[in-house]
Simulated scan of single mutants.
Amino acid sequence: MAEPARPAGGGGAGGEGLGRSRGGFTNKLHLRADGRCRPLSLVVTSGQRADCTSSRRCWRRSVFRRSARAGRARSPTADKAYSNSPCREYLRRGGIRHSIPEKTDSQAARLRKGSRGGRPPGFDEERYKKHNTVERAINRLKQFRAVATRYDKRGYVFLGTATTAALLIWLRS
């Protein structure tokens, strides 16, 4: 019998998706959501793991579909945790326009360099207003007690619980 798939980037306790964070010994759930606040992809990482390290896995798990009208990929919105050059470069290589605000310290460093700092990354405030769909999708997942309390300490068990909750959200909508 094959061993169950472990969550990517488990870190912490032997790839179990556990690690120290402000909330104690726990894990993090990263997700992508569509415009109707339904989860598209889920990734579990350890609690101390930075958000930007799981961005590629999360964005890769569900393919960015090209819209038939515009002929280009839909643009993701993310918060400042994903505002770093590897994330932006990954999206740029895929030809995907994004709306990720620049961190204040990155902006100050760029301005300090003057003309060598380059131009600021593109940012569309109107598109960024749709960022709350991810927060609302997380709140929909937290309506399920097993996801909200995180009693499942094993990463793959918690990922299965979150996936089941996501499937129920899709079936209800």
Rank of each mutant, 00 (worst) to 15 (best):
T53E: 07
S54G: 14
S54K: 00
S54H: 01
S55N: 10
R56D: 08
R56Y: 07
R57L: 10
R57F: 01
C58T: 15
C58M: 14
R60S: 14
R60A: 15
R61Q: 11
S62E: 12
S62L: 09
S62G: 11
F64T: 14
F64L: 15
R65T: 12
R65I: 14
R65M: 09
R65A: 09
R65V: 07
R66C: 06
R66N: 06
R66V: 09
R66Q: 13
S67F: 06
S67E: 13
A68H: 03
A68Q: 06
R69F: 10
R69Y: 09
A70L: 10
A70V: 14
G71F: 03
G71K: 13
G71W: 09
R72H: 13
R72N: 12
A73V: 06
R74I: 08
R74S: 15
R74L: 10
S75Q: 10
S75Y: 02
S75E: 02
S75P: 07
P76S: 04
P76F: 00
T77H: 01
A78M: 06
K80R: 15
K80L: 13
K80G: 05
K80T: 10
K80D: 00
A81C: 11
A81K: 05
A81Y: 01
A81P: 05
Y82G: 02
S83T: 02
N84H: 07
S85D: 14
P86M: 09
P86S: 05
P86V: 03
P86D: 00
C87P: 01
C87S: 10
R88W: 09
R88A: 05
R88C: 02
E89Y: 07
E89H: 15
E89I: 06
Y90G: 04
Y90H: 09
Y90R: 09
Y90M: 15
Y90V: 12
Y90P: 03
L91V: 09
R93D: 12
R93E: 12
R93L: 11
R93P: 09
R93C: 11
G94E: 01
G94R: 12
G94C: 04
G94V: 06
G95P: 04
G95M: 08
G95W: 12
